[in-house]
Design a protein around this nucleic acid. Structure first.
Lengths: 144, 144
DNA sequence: ACAATATACTACTAATTCAATAGACTAACT
DNA sequence: AGTTAGTCTATTGAATTAGTAGTATATTGT
């Protein structure tokens, strides 16, 4: 399951993506619009900022805005910041690899082999889908 | 992430699949071979038994054996018993659907739309891969 | 300068889930 | 009867996740 943290992160980035040409948006406004606990969102946006996805400005008239083109923010990057690994087993993770405690010989593990395939299939989608794509999908869904 | 419960379940089924033509295998033996805490494995095997995948026999000479052909036990079925949903968001789940608390209009949610694709990609692999396939993969990996 | 606004940062708490353990019970075989 | 092995329910402990609190810092407008 996706953590709420990740879901909130994507929602916030989508909102900020739609807001791209306007002045920065405040945490409280994003929180209200997306029904996200404000203080929790605050932490999430901070993580995204520290990872270089967001620009922030303090003080009156401040807030958050995207620091990149929505086309260049892929879901996989967000998920790795907020949730960590994409793979369902640690031994199949590219960026967060570690050995399974109980595993005897990883190289010949059939489970790992299958879940490497699952990881690749998931990764293909998540590394091809950007915030701009999510927004585009929403627009399509609304029209239909 | 896959729960340890699911990982242990698959490991146990693989062992039992390899043991298919022999007398039933005891929990303690499976636990030892696969380095799984015995009492925990006990519960897992019980779940799999209650779901119809295993046959069990009490008393001396008893133990567990598969109740189905390893070809007919798909990873997706096991995961749904031990972990529940396959999808990464509840609103994209086929068998364990429920609405996201904070979601306003699900039908036009871009996140859901993407994660339905992820679910389908995952599902394709997991519903095509059986215990027999996992065993076959292991054999191939050992040979190479 | 000062008040108001808004993010930055750290620490903490609550709730939930996951992993594991314990123990008493039932069935089967010798 | 005694031993072996699964059945079943409850409980505990650990880890993770979700959310809250409070203080510090930066920016703007008057």
């Amino acid at each position: 399951m996706l953590s709420k943290k990740t879901k909130y992160a994507i929602k916030a980035l989508v909102v900020l993506g739609k807001n791209a040409d306007k002045p920065p948006m405040q945490i409280s406004k994003i929180a209200e619009e997306e029904r996200i606990p404000k203080k929790f969102l605050e932490q999430i946006l901070l993580d995204l900022r520290n990872a270089g996805f967001l620009y922030s400005k303090k003080g009156a008239g401040g807030g958050y805005s995207l620091n990149k083109d929505p086309k260049d923010i892929y879901l996989v990057s967000i998920m790795r910041i907020t949730d960590g690994p994409i793979a369902m087993v640690p031994c199949a993770s590219l960026n967060f690899y570690h050995k399974c405690d109980e595993c005897k010989q990883e190289t010949s593990c059939g489970i790992r082999d299958v879940f490497i395939d699952v990881r690749d299939a998931t990764l293909k989608i998540l590394s091809e889908t950007s915030i701009a794509d999510v927004i585009a999908r929403e627009n399509t869904l609304i029209k239909v």
